[in-house]
Structure formats: C-alpha cells, structure tokens
Simulated scan of single mutants.
Amino acid sequence: MAACGKSQGEGAPPGFGGGAPAQVNVVTVQPQTLPVSFEYTGQTQGSREVEVRARVTGILLKRNYAEGLPVKAGQSLFSIDPVPFQTALARAEADQAAVQARLANAKRLLERMKPLADGGVVSKRDYDDALSAHDVAAADLKAANARVTEAKLNIGYTHVVAPVSGLAGGAAKSEGSLVSGPDVLLTTIVQTNPVKAVFGIPEAEHARVQADLRERKLLLPPGGMTVQVLSADGTPLAGGGKLQFSEPQVDAATGTVRSQAELPNADGRIKPGQFVRVRLSGATRPDVMQVPQRAVMEGPQGKFVYVVAPSDKPEMKGATVATVKPVQAGEWVDLPDGKGWVIRQGLAPGDKVIIDGLMRIGPGAPVQIAQAPAAAASAPAKPASK
C-alpha cells in the first residue's frame, strides 16, 4: 500500500497528489479606463450612384465619353439623333407665328370695335365677340409658346450629359440603337470620393452597446467614433471617416441593424462593392480590468480565469491555490505582448490573475508565483477590434 501511494505521488502533476506547487506567472489587475473599438464586416458603396437615362426617344448616334474614366458634371455622354426634334421645333415655331398673327388681327379689330360700341354704332354682342376672339388668340399664343419651349427642351435632351461628376461605367447601349426614353438605362456614374461603408451590427450586440451607453459603462468621444476601413487581410485602406447613421429598426432577414459610415477616398483605393472590415474606434470603458487573451478560458458555464488566492481548506492552511473566477469579457485590446480581453465583471482590484502555467493547474491546485506580479495589466492599452 505504501509503495502504491508513493508511486501515485511521484506520477502526479505538480501541485497534486503531494507534488510541489506549480510555478505560475501572474498579473495584478487594477480598474482603469480602456479604449475599445468595434469591428464589423461591411461593403462599400459610392457616395452617389446615379443612373444615366435619356429623356427623349430616338436613335443613339454617338457615345462621347471613355468608359470607366472620370467625367465632369455637365459633360456630354451620348448624342441622340436631333433631326426629328428640330423638325418639331420648326413646326411649333410656325404655329407660333400663325397664332401671333391671329392675335394681332384680333387686337386691331377690338381696338376698332371699342369706340363704335361706345357710340352705339355696333351692337354689344359684336363687341363681345371681338373681345372673346382676342382673348382666345392670346390663350392660343401661350399654348404655342409652350410648344416651342418644349420642342427646344427636347432638342437639348438629345445631348445626354452627366448629372454629377464621378466614374462613368460601361455603355449599356451601342451606337445605332433605339433609345425609348427614360425606361432605358444608358450608363451609371459613381462618386467614389468620399465613399460609403455599409455594415450590420448584430441585434444583441447593438442592444448591449445601447444599454452600456445609457448606464455610462461605455463612453463616446465628443465628436463621435472614428471609422477605419481595412481589407480582408487587415491592410488599412482608409481612415478618418465618420459614422453617419444607424437604422432605427432591425433587418428581419439578417438580424442586424444596418449602419453607414463615410470615408475619404481621394486615392481611389476603395472600389464600390468591395467587402471590407469596418472598425469603429474612439470609445472608452471606465473602471474595467484587462488581462492577456491567454488568461481567459472557456468552461461549461462561460468564460473564467484562475486567480492566486489563499486556500480555504483546513488541511491546506497557509497555501496559495488556483481559484476559478467567472468573468464577463468585453472587447479585445492590444497589449504589448499580444491581444488582451477587457474584463467588465468578475475581478476585484488587486486580484492576481494567472497568465502562464495554466496547463499544469486545475481548480484548487497549489501554486507558487514564479515572479513578482506584473503590472502590464494596468498599463494603457491600444484599442483592438471586438
């Protein structure tokens, strides 16, 4: 029996079965205000995406721009055959001249009739007829003037111009095609500076952040959070953006709150439709702890850490052991030696959290601190994505 007991003690892990306490490294945590950031998957859009359509029906004579290159507002993009509209203008101007002649004649007749009617030479009815003829001719002239204006507008519409500046897409119709008015798309123009980033915030996370803001557990900078866009591999593409808005309702199809940010894109690195990582930074969490990522473990009841504390067992009086503490982890932060967790609940100031030697211990295992408690957990951290 003694031999059997000795064998078990010699083969047990450090700290168990009578072995020496496991050597561990710890950090001593203190409450502090930590910068945090949030990161989401998004897709870019042009700040303005305009469909270019003709306003008149006709034969497309010419494309006047280079596809895929920048265009200026007012620049001619397409030419539509103007001859039918020139003919319509000539006809409208002829009708206008005829109506002007009728109005002039009605005016002269009315001027002759008035003194005669005053003197009783002609009847009141004849004068009224002359007055009505004058008024009808005046109204006909207004209609004729409107038709001339419309004909001139239609001639102008045969020159399809860019409504905004931006990058012009490919032509949807080739020369010689019949364009049947506004129902036919000719091309699109996209403004890429600034550029928009559209992303979705999960419903549960959005509700949690809003609750933290109300309870002052999360603080925003006076000018709002800044936005940075990164490629899929983490390469920064643009920064200095601002969050524009978040939708007031949850998208039932995705379970997210649609949000939109705007960023400068003078160098054109960001293309519309590109999938990106959207990082929101500038927020802070007051009175929270931080620990290295490797110190936080996952168990059946959620996340927990090991802290060094005196044993509460009489037979181990005076010994220090690894004690489990459930924690509520928040966002990630950048520490000098890697990623770290923001610990929102579960730790007390001065707790010594075990960060190394975790594979050699279990709940209640005797431990010995291999070095003085590190102060890294109370050093300022850089914000990292959630």
Rank of each mutant, 00 (worst) to 15 (best):
R112G: 03
G119T: 06
M113F: 15
K72S: 12
E111R: 03
Y127S: 07
Q30R: 15
A117T: 02
V164M: 10
V56L: 08
L141I: 06
T57C: 05
A54G: 09
Q43I: 06
V29C: 08
P31L: 10
R48M: 13
R55V: 02
Q75P: 02
V56D: 11
A117N: 03
S37N: 06
L141E: 07
E111H: 10
P163G: 01
S165E: 04
A88E: 06
L131R: 14
P84D: 12
A137V: 01
L89G: 01
D129V: 11
K114R: 14
L131S: 11
K114V: 04
P35A: 08
G74D: 01
N154M: 00
Y65M: 07
V26S: 13
G156Q: 08
A143D: 12
L69T: 10
L69P: 01
N105L: 15
R108F: 07
A139E: 10
G120C: 08
D95P: 01
I59R: 15
P84T: 05
V27Q: 05
L110D: 12
Q86M: 05
N145A: 15
Q100P: 04
I155W: 02
T33V: 10
T57W: 03
Q43P: 00
R102N: 14
T87N: 15
Y40V: 04
E39N: 05
R91P: 00
N145Q: 14
L116N: 09
K124T: 15
R48W: 04
Q30G: 14
L34A: 13
A92R: 11
G42L: 09
A106I: 01
V161K: 11
K72F: 09
L34S: 06
A144P: 00
T28I: 02
G68T: 08
R91D: 07
A98Y: 02
L89F: 06
G119A: 15
V29M: 09
D81G: 00
D128K: 05
G74L: 09
F38C: 03
P35M: 10
E93G: 02
K114D: 06
D129S: 11
Q96I: 00
A104D: 06
T28G: 14
L110A: 14
H134A: 07
Q45C: 04
M113G: 15
L131T: 13
V36L: 05
A98W: 10
V161I: 13
H134R: 12
D129R: 12
E67H: 02
E67Q: 03
V29I: 06
A98Q: 12
F78I: 01
R91C: 00
A88D: 07
T57Q: 13
K72M: 11
V52E: 05
K152Y: 07
I59H: 11
I59C: 07
A143K: 08
V83T: 12
K114F: 10
A144R: 06
L69F: 09
A88H: 05
R112N: 10
F78P: 05
S132P: 00
M113A: 12
A130P: 05
